Amino acid sequence: MLKRNLPLLTLFLLSACTQVSDQSPLHTASATLPEYRQADFQSYLSDTRAWLEQQRVFVSADKQAELDANMPYELQPADGLPAQKAILLVHGLGDSPFFFRDIAQALSQQGFLVRTILLSGHGSRPADLMLADSDEWQTMVSHHTQLLQQQVSEVWLGGFSTGANLATSEALNNDDVSGLLLFSPAIVPESAMTHLLPVANLFSNWLDQEAPDGNYTRYGSLTTNGATQYYYTTRQVRQQLADSTYDKPVLMALSADDSVVDSEAVKTLFEQRFSNPASKLFWFGKTTEPTDPRIEILTSHLPQQRISNFSHMSLLFAANNPFYGRNGSHRICENGQTEAAEQACPNSNDLWYSNWGYQEANKVHARLTWNPYFDRLVSGIETVTAADQQASR
């Protein structure tokens, strides 16, 4: 999801009452979206790069870095051996394949053939989300899952936020999927007002328009249609889970303080609808005794690292990530605090890190954009995926 994370009712009221006439290239849609049904992945990569080179509105001086961040990609198993297992990774709303850089490298080290895709409407300009359609996103995930299943017999799906919804829906429809890796799955929205998004979409093209801030890994503005398509993915996967359980192994990671996701509701779904005994949920929050032995609780309050709690996006990134890591080049100061705190953030020598919207007296918080437990998460992924191999023997 995107950086604003404002209460949805506020966004709905603003969008229903206000039309912003911004005709900048960022806020003007492309004529068409790129094709994604190529017969092989290399053709998909080539066609996607050609389209992005023509349609992306660049927001930094480093155009090559921007293209690389938004391009889908493939990583072969790091051991150099022929792939025996593979995974398709699906990013979130407004995000890019860059979000899986650290996870993808870890999976490659574990012997996976790793592929990421670029969801239609992404990677080019925020206005292209006016053209997005959640059914097309689902078809895209299905097509690229099938391409992998033609190549190897063991295929996993992984997703972040909206991408986790799409991955879960595909797995529930495709019995040949071996299991799921779900990071901040946005199955149940934090706001109860998301059902109003289709109505808001009738009145306004935009929920939020922002000037670029140099972050080329995600959009800084959000179309009403993009948010509406996200809502449709939540509705679809919840309907599926209401009718069935998922009995393949699942690795799920959730921040208890997530401002996008109703984490408690998703945790309940994990306990009740994801039935495999080898599944595992990493819960980053208060250390209370879990009711399900498959849940591992890791405290998110780490004052020695000036971390107050974990954000929606922080679970994906290692501390040494050059862009989002502890000493990374990009800091998200627009974090739902007071204006004074956000102004103080860029030059603060005593900066704390948190989820969007968290405030504490006498502290300035930027968004937490890395996971101090990243290595533990990677270890958990290996345990869950190995459990599937043992069960299949």
Rank of each mutant, 00 (worst) to 15 (best):
R56P: 13
V57D: 05
V57N: 10
V57R: 05
V57Q: 01
V59T: 08
V59W: 04
S60K: 05
A61E: 01
D62W: 15
K63Y: 07
K63P: 04
Q64K: 15
A65K: 14
A65D: 12
L67R: 14
L67G: 09
D68P: 11
A69S: 12
A69M: 05
M71L: 15
P72E: 01
P72Q: 14
Y73M: 07
Q76M: 02
Q76C: 01
P77E: 13
P77R: 11
P77D: 03
A78K: 02
D79Q: 02
G80N: 02
Q84A: 15
Q84K: 14
K85I: 02
A86W: 06
A86G: 06
I87K: 13
I87N: 01
H91T: 13
L93Y: 09
G94W: 00
S96R: 01
P97K: 06
F100G: 12
F100Y: 14
R101W: 12
R101I: 01
D102A: 06
D102G: 14
A104R: 03
A104C: 08
Q105F: 13
Q105E: 15
Q105V: 08
A106K: 09
L107R: 04
L107I: 02
S108W: 01
S108G: 05
Q109D: 11
Q110M: 15
F112H: 10
L113G: 03
L113I: 00
T116S: 09
I117S: 14
L118Y: 11
L119M: 14
L119D: 14
S120N: 06
H122L: 09
G123V: 12
S124I: 08
R125F: 07
P126E: 06
A127M: 01
A127S: 05
D128N: 08
L129A: 13
M130C: 14
L131G: 04
A132M: 13
D133E: 12
D135C: 08
S142T: 09
H143M: 00
T145W: 07
Q146G: 06
L148V: 11
L148F: 03
